[in-house]
Amino acid sequence: MFTIKVAILIGAAYFIYDKLTNNSQLDFATFWTQLEHSKLLHFSTISVLLFISILNWFVEIVKWKTLVNSFKEISLWESAAHTLGGLTASLFTPNRIGEYGAKALYFQKSERKRVVGLNFLGNVAQLLATIFFGMLGGLFFILHFELTLPWIKVWQIVFLLMIIATLLIVITKQKIIQIKGFSWGRMRDFVRNVSGGIHLKNCSYAVIRYLIFSHQFYFLLLFFGLNTSYFLTMSTIAVMYLITSLIPMLFIFDVVVKGSVAVWLFGYLDIPELSILTVVSLMWILNFVLPSIVGSYFVLNFSVPKSNEKSVVS
């Protein structure tokens, strides 16, 4: 177990170092020059940015605690260990899917399927918040710039997605392809067994967290000469998060994909490419690099549960 922990920490450290020093879109020297010119390197500014990042992950930690408390009481410290330790351990997995397994390891074997389901509910709530604000932002963005979308292609994609979704439901219901421990009936029952209050809190925390990190992005843009209206800027940020959240990608390419999408979208607002790439890199450092460094402490101190504990149903 110790060897695995060390391997995870070394891998995470190398990944962060490689991304900071070998960014194909923005080399470190240019990144640092941009920071100096933006006047971000002040104690008060850095303190505010760190506070926002801490608040962002605190909300996620509270959200996870709320979900787990639906069947078992855990402390805020334990929730922090699950959340940040899971982040660190999932750095190299597609769309952070490794987070599911990492969080499940903190629980008894009999509890792990439930934990995976709860983690899924948490991620779905965050995705739904992103889609909701992204669609509102997209509508405002399209109307403002009077963009003409290729509606035929859009409807073709929507139709294709509907067919794929229908086939997946039919295949699963008819048990054409069986996945151990999974069925639509079990999923439906699992969601229903989680109280409405927990679902409401889960979605509320997801919305709060979305508002926190999207406004952090806006706050950073202000230091790079942003002179566009608040609503137009926030709509562009919303579209950026919507697009990047729907693109299947390896988490290791997350900052690259977000950078490319952001440069394209903020080009409509006449914001320089280097400024956007710097902001995207800063958001990555503040909300993933620093939390994963804290998470490395929890990974190093992780131990497999030894005995069953009493569970409670709320």
Rank of each mutant, 00 (worst) to 15 (best):
F2V: 15
K5V: 06
I8G: 05
A12W: 02
Y14H: 04
Y17T: 14
Y17A: 14
D18W: 11
K19F: 09
N23C: 12
Q25I: 11
L26P: 04
T30M: 04
W32L: 14
H37D: 15
H37N: 15
S38T: 11
L40V: 13
L40S: 11
H42C: 05
F43W: 15
S44P: 08
I46D: 13
S47P: 01
L49E: 10
S53I: 10
L55P: 00
L55Q: 01
L55E: 01
N56A: 03
F58V: 00
V59N: 01
V59C: 05
E60H: 09
I61V: 09
W64Y: 12
T66I: 04
V68M: 03
N69E: 09
N69V: 00
S70H: 05
S70T: 10
F71A: 07
K72I: 04
E73Q: 07
S75C: 05
S75T: 15
L76N: 02
E78D: 13
A81Q: 14
H82R: 07
T83Y: 15
L84W: 12
L87I: 12
F92G: 09
N95Q: 09
R96N: 13
I97T: 13
A102V: 07
K103R: 15
L105Q: 12
Y106W: 12
R112M: 08
V115S: 05
V116D: 04
V124I: 15
Q126F: 01
L128F: 13
A129T: 08
T130P: 00
G134R: 01
G134Y: 03
G138C: 06
F140L: 11
I142L: 07
I142V: 15
L143T: 13
F145I: 06
E146Y: 02
T148A: 15
I152Y: 07
I157K: 04
I157S: 09
V158R: 05
F159Y: 07
L160Q: 10
M162Y: 07
T166N: 10
L168T: 05
L168I: 12
I169R: 11
I176F: 14
S183M: 06
M187N: 05
R188N: 12
R188V: 09
R192W: 12
K201D: 06
K201S: 13
N202A: 13
Y205V: 04
V207S: 04
R209V: 06
S214L: 07
Q216P: 00
Q216K: 04
F219L: 14
L222C: 02
F223D: 00
T228M: 01
T228Y: 00
S229N: 09
M234T: 06
M234W: 08
S235I: 02
T236D: 02
T244A: 08
T244H: 03
S245R: 04
S245G: 11
M249T: 04
F253G: 01
D254G: 08
D254K: 10
V256A: 14
S260D: 02
V261A: 02
V261R: 01
A262P: 00
L265H: 03
L265I: 05
F266P: 04
F266G: 06
F266M: 10
E273V: 07
L274W: 08
I276S: 03
I276F: 05
V279R: 06
S281N: 12
S281G: 07
M283H: 03
W284D: 01
V289E: 08
L290Q: 03
S292C: 11
Y297R: 13
L300T: 08
F302E: 00
S307P: 00
S307E: 14
K310T: 12
V313L: 14
